[in-house]
């Protein structure tokens, strides 16, 4: 008669080399391969990069004669860093010592919120950045020269309404595209993980409701 699975399990590991722990090398310096940790390090790295960009771009734009625009860009990027900081704080509170359902559910909620928040941000961020930069550039001597050749200046020698209409239209397209690009980017990089996470959670939810 075949042994039960309980008997196989209980007797199978006795005096077996299978339960000898593998050698742990350089564990202290090991980089985590955990999904939540990966997002945490990604957010932390992004924050540093955006902060650096805020300083560099802000200063560079101010240096070329548009300090007000430079300050606005720096402020917008700093706002992005602050949003990221808030998300990072929430993410770091997700503890791995809670039940699997709570752990996965908390991460799923965080992920949904983060994606929704960034989608909203990028809906306005890219168009605003484009509109501010181009609107300011339109008043520069070089731009006025080009616009004059294109017959796109008004009687005062300033950019005409058409220029602002084109900037507005491109900003609108960027607004729609920005959100879509962000979502497509997340889906491309983490789509399969997110799908599997949802599937895991759905199975657990069904099991809780049975």
């Amino acid at each position: 008669m075949r042994k039960s699975i309980e008997d196989i399990w209980q007797s199978g590991f006795i005096d077996d080399m299978a339960l000898i722990a593998p050698k742990v090398n350089n564990l202290y310096a090991m980089k985590s391969q955990n999904l939540v940790d990966k997002f945490e390090s990604l957010f932390a790295a992004n924050q540093k990069a955006v902060l650096f960009a805020a300083m560099v771009i802000g200063s560079a734009v101010a240096y070329v004669g548009a300090p007000f625009v430079g300050a606005i860009i720096a402020a917008m990027l700093t706002g992005l860093v602050m949003v990221g900081h808030g998300q990072l704080k929430k993410l770091s509170k997700i503890s791995k010592d809670q039940s699997s359902f709570e752990y996965l559910n908390e991460f799923d909620i965080w992920l949904d919120n983060a994606i929704a928040q960034y989608t909203q941000i990028y809906r306005f961020f890219y168009p605003a950045l484009f509109a501010i930069c181009t609107a300011r550039y339109a008043y520069s001597d070089s731009a006025i020269g080009v616009l004059t050749q294109l017959d796109m200046v008004n009687s005062n020698g300033m950019p005409s309404f058409t220029v602002y209409a084109v900037i507005g239209l491109i900003s609108l397209i960027l607004g729609v595209a920005g959100a879509r690009i962000y979502r497509a980017d997340v889906t491309m990089v983490y789509g399969s993980e997110i799908k599997k996470l949802k599937a895991l959670l759905n199975e657990m939810k069904a099991l809780r409701e049975d």
């Binding site: 391969q33 955990n34 999904l35 791995k96 699997s100 752990y103 996965l104």
Partner: peptide, 8 residues
């Protein structure tokens, strides 16, 4: 379990 369920 939490590590194994979310290991990349």
């Amino acid at each position: 379990f939490n590590v194994c369920l979310t290991y990349l």
